[in-house]
Amino acid sequence: MNTRGKLVVRILAGIGALLSLYLLTMKLNGQISSISGCGSGGGCANVLGSRWSQFFGIPVSAFSSALYLTILGLTFRFNATLARSASILLFGAAAWFMGLQFFYLKTFCPWCLATHLTGILTATALLLHHGDEKKKSSIHQWTVGLGGIAILVAGQLFGPVPDTHLITEEKQPSEPKETSQAETGERMVSFPNSETAVPLKDLPHIGPIDAPHVLIKYFDYTCNSCRDMHGDLGKLQASYPEEITVVYLPVPLNRSCNPHLSSRVKDHEGACELARLSLAVWKTNPELWEQVHNGLFSRPVLSPAIARGHIEQRVDKVQLEEALKDPWIAERLTSNMKTYQTMVIATDRMPKLVMEGGSVMHGISRTTEDFVKTIREKLKL
């Protein structure tokens, strides 16, 4: 390889190594996790938190760091076979990961894209600057390069998938300030890190009021992961119809009504309005609330105007308007958001599902079957 070629490859491979090491650091220090859900810091959190960011439990950025450092070494002791094999592997890996972002994840991480583009440029430089050592590519070189790509793709498609949810233990109130169930005869619900309790009948819920187990879901109607868990909970309750009741407490991911969001969380348009509409229906006509609640989780996300139009076909327009003015809605949202805020230390990811004993599931499971199994074991169903 000539001197000019070595310089170009060293610069590009150095940039690629630095980018890869930066992404690896974010994975290793917990800044980016595999927890799947809304409320993340944007595209990089979604991409680097996906199953595709790992290969048999090891961050792919660790492999790319090693590959770029190997290429740097080749500029000091050149080997044509390794150089061409590395070029093929870089091209293939860049195409694979960029394709996943564009066509599957449909979200983008600028740092990841920069790494992949650097890989393409590095591979091109390796192929163009062999100088006097240029030779025709051998079958062996193609076998090594394409074999590496095949192993990568197969490992990610069929290898172990990391957990996409996290379960933590939260502090439970020891002596609720609210009147106890024994004193009122009502089923009371308490919240993590809070000394208050509220009658179950006053909270939006699905399931029998005397069910042995009560779960509390903190969610946002504009959150795709919350919508996915809605289906998981439906499957769970269909399997145990008399044993589980789920309380649904909206926490809008929008700063116009939720001042507790961290700077990492992107505002979700229409979240506040949809939450208020849901609570207004509960206040006006609890019997219709479950139907409206399911409708608000339709795909794609409904705009507030369209959602209200659908609701007004079922609920009296005047009653709905009066309910939206009820101070209870603002009080309920404020309480939901304050309680939710105590649970984001582990992760910002939503939804959050509170179980008995203070256990909280953050994010969603890989599959509905995994979800049902996890809850069944936690509740000893």
Rank of each mutant, 00 (worst) to 15 (best):
K217S: 10
F158T: 11
F91C: 06
A86G: 05
G145D: 00
N254P: 09
T342N: 01
K27I: 06
P304T: 00
L28W: 12
L353N: 12
I149C: 02
G131N: 10
S53K: 09
V281T: 15
N254Y: 01
A271I: 04
V9P: 07
T124V: 07
M343T: 11
D348I: 00
T339L: 00
L203C: 05
A346P: 04
S87W: 05
L100T: 08
W52Q: 10
G73F: 15
Q291P: 04
V47A: 12
F191T: 06
P204R: 00
G147Q: 14
I35S: 04
S50A: 11
R84A: 00
G16D: 09
L126N: 01
E287D: 10
M350G: 04
I375T: 10
G363E: 03
R276P: 06
L12P: 07
M98H: 01
S33Y: 03
A211R: 03
M361A: 08
P250V: 01
G41F: 00
E183S: 14
L274D: 03
L23P: 09
R84I: 04
A80W: 10
L320N: 03
V292M: 11
K171H: 08
H293S: 09
N254V: 00
S256Q: 13
V214Q: 02
F97S: 09
G270C: 02
C223D: 12
Q291E: 13
L288E: 12
M98S: 13
G270E: 03
S40Y: 01
T347E: 04
S335F: 14
G42T: 14
S33F: 02
L324F: 04
A80Y: 07
G57R: 11
V47H: 10
L279D: 04
I206E: 05
Q54I: 09
L166G: 06
E287V: 12
C257R: 02
S263V: 12
K106A: 07
P204Y: 00
R255N: 00
S180Q: 14
T367S: 14
M1A: 06
G148C: 09
T342C: 01
P252R: 02
L200T: 14
N29C: 05
E331Q: 06
M343F: 10
W142A: 02
R376Y: 06
G270V: 03
K134L: 08
G43M: 13
